[in-house]
Nucleic acid binder design. Sequence first.
DNA 1: CGGAGCGCCTGGAAGC
DNA 2: TGCTTCCAGGCGCTCC
Length: 268
Amino acid sequence: MPELPDVEGFRKVLDSCARDRPIRRVEVYDAGVLHGVTGDRLRRELEGRRFTEPARRGKWLLAPTDGDGTAGPTLLLHFGMTGRLVCCASGDERHAHDRVAFTLDAGRQLRFRDQRKLKGLWLADASEVARTLDAQGPDAAAVSRGEFDELLHGRRGILKSALTDQSLLAGVGNLLADEILWRARLHPSRRAGALTDAERARLYRDMRSVLRASVRAGCVPPRRSWLTGHRDEAEGTCPRCGTPLRHGRTAGRSTVWCPHCQPASPDS
DNA sequence: CGGAGCGCCTGGAAGC
DNA sequence: TGCTTCCAGGCGCTCC
């Protein structure tokens, strides 16, 4: 499930595979992943251009292009739940879920591979890029403590909804939110605006630390010492205290927490 | 404002 | 065995 750490990994794939390389050929195997652009136009607009330095904001990956010394359109990528970006040799066999392939030089091919097609690719000019970024909160891996406090301040909903609201804070998904809340010993249904200073400090610190380790791993690592390493077990126990983990739904999402480490408090 | 519920999409697993 | 149903969770949408 691509969240900030996974998308950061895809940014690195894009950077090492495609940056500064000319786009020789664009092949769309399944136009179902294209949004607001046809396969024909995608090909016309990108073939002959070059990918430049990629960027990431939350779960969005931005692949700007140039050509003839002028800036070209930016390819925007969102991976939904099952999307990924892979760097192949251009002769490699096609995978059943390869949806779009960008053939570069030196025999490389960048492929957008996605089973469920919940999101996909957009082709954006500068103002559309700005609009997409403006709809996102600050990146969770870059947000300052002060900004973080402001985001939560006055927020009336529950904590988990706040953490996963991309327009508030960009990059945290369902898995990360559970991991961060478990690490910070905060119940998912705590009121976001009702945390004490000490709790907010802990939440910020643990969010940054979970993100750092996850970016290093390229995903939220299912380590035995992490909550994520136990969330799929029917009778999983908290790796910190051994209490049986609780499974429920919060804001329509499956949620796992430790009832001992993360007590529901008066505000929730 | 925010949360619940639905739909999009696919395929693996569970249920009958 | 084979069919149906559920579920995963990304996000956008409507409704309350």
